[in-house]
Design a protein around this nucleic acid. Sequence first.
DNA 1: ATGAAAGCGCTAACAA
DNA 2: TTGTTAGCGCTTTCAT
Lengths: 346, 346
Amino acid sequence: MARRQAEARTGKRLSSGTGTLSEVAKTASVSEMTVSRVLRGKTNVSQKTRTRVLDAVKTLGYVPNRLAGALASAKSMQLAVVIPSLRNIVFPELLAGVTDALDSAGYQAVIGVSEYDLEREAKLVTAMISWRPAGIVITNAYHHPDVVSLLTATPAPVVEVMELTRNPIDMCVGLNHRKAGAVTATRLLDKGYRRFAYLGCDLETDLAASKRFKGFVETVRQGGGAMIAKLTVDEASSVGLGRKHMADLLAQSSQIEAVYTSNDAVASGALMYCLAKGIAVPQSVAIASFSGLELGQSMPLPLTTVRSPRYRMGRLSAKRILDRLNGKKTPRVTDAGFEFVEGATT
Amino acid sequence: MARRQAEARTGKRLSSGTGTLSEVAKTASVSEMTVSRVLRGKTNVSQKTRTRVLDAVKTLGYVPNRLAGALASAKSMQLAVVIPSLRNIVFPELLAGVTDALDSAGYQAVIGVSEYDLEREAKLVTAMISWRPAGIVITNAYHHPDVVSLLTATPAPVVEVMELTRNPIDMCVGLNHRKAGAVTATRLLDKGYRRFAYLGCDLETDLAASKRFKGFVETVRQGGGAMIAKLTVDEASSVGLGRKHMADLLAQSSQIEAVYTSNDAVASGALMYCLAKGIAVPQSVAIASFSGLELGQSMPLPLTTVRSPRYRMGRLSAKRILDRLNGKKTPRVTDAGFEFVEGATT
DNA sequence: ATGAAAGCGCTAACAA
DNA sequence: TTGTTAGCGCTTTCAT
């Protein structure tokens, strides 16, 4: 048996190991169309033949070939999802929302990871489109010009997710990152903080973080505060980033009252640094952030942060696409909102 | 323009928005076969015609239809990946290894999430096989009988990843979890700990964790130690789980010297609880774990743990499948190993 | 180096 | 309710 397998799995055939519609048709003594109808749950088939067909399917262990189905009907059941990274838990969480929504509708997610590289994203989008997906979910709102043309030309519904844009290629589901930064600044100013610092990843790469930063800085200035230190590191946001670089940031000025970070991972690392060094938070230095990760809320001091609805945005994105495919009217822009979370670090 | 889009994106056609091979052929005044050859990088085409074809492709913005290609050639460029969850960062990390390996070879990953549910996994595997993937990567080594038949029958290479089995359906890439538990116990015993407790998720659900637990308990017994407390919670492992339930575990006995947890997420939560409550780690209670997450190593006290090579296992799994597809000989069983990490929590 | 014919496995559209 | 015909867009195979 093992030998048969080894021979069969040469990759030379992927016929199926499951036979074809026509074999099922022969076994059940009906036409291929009838089998097709039964398998797709069409109602105009008598109960008798239906049972006969289903029996044949079962005895043959037949699994339909969706490649052929999609080609013939020009309707795929695959949804392309493009995300920048799998290392940052927010994207898997987004993906979880997408897959949950698709699951009940019988769709599959095909994923592509751009690693925050626009060129790579462009290649990826081409590759995805070559599978003629029923829809496309792509993270963020800034893309390679080729991606914009491709996505504009494709007949499939497209959702840009995470950031809010007034001018999406097709649809968009996201939140206003600038506003999230601004809200955070307002809360900190209200608490009396005036001298701020920023710690995070490279802002050219993470455009959403950059928007939050801008909103934060603007509001700080308007509120009479000042940014007196800033440290960005050319690597992806992570707990390790915060843990390793908080010292350097604090060394930039002894007057820092509060640190705003690119996200909860960095903030958690920064907080761990303070805990390890015995630096009093928030008395010596306050920390505020963005994401609302479970991690941040499990810290000895729960983080002050802004919770973004990743899972919900994923679900919503998939829903928008499914709705469109079902001919429903869909809004171009969906503001998924966010929620300020008052923790113990400010 | 926006209107045209809205009309086009009804989901009624997914023809392409990009034309077909035959249109390219007409534009370049060659046969479809020639275009096909150029696009697949076959060498037996003159430089002149090649350029002409490529020009036509560019001006038309043509993107090949891989559904049709895969159907005609019986060769898909999609790899199915089935994982239990996206919430636990180890699976996205595994996935990252897979997508990185696929990327350079031009393959795409189609993912399915079973949510630790064998029934759901069975449905998922059927759905995936209906796309006739070039290969299948599936997490863990225990499956629904239907899954076993399906995977045994499919001509595509199959890799079971994470756990080590001597009898994989086709191939397997993983580590010996029982041994990982045993090694951890040995180290703790060597350090003089004798009274142990366990904190983690439901062991019926997470079979790998269960194997580690068994290895741990066996070794503890053999080494003259004892398990004097155990708390398992019927929810997925998470930082929150450890954070919330560490108190209850410690309440079970005042004599607990060391706590072994289902993984680093739980351990991190447990450690945070101790930090928040001022419980001295490891003096009052030691903590040891499994995973080797960046998070655990960024804690104020780095965790004592066992690092599993998630990313590498992902890469290796994809590599095994690609090798098989290229006709290379591949080992049935690949032990990816693990590494004990001496932290500051023991 | 290039092309023509046939067909992959399925479904739409029409007929009976 | 069931079947027939004609493709979907591509690649294989076999010519030339």
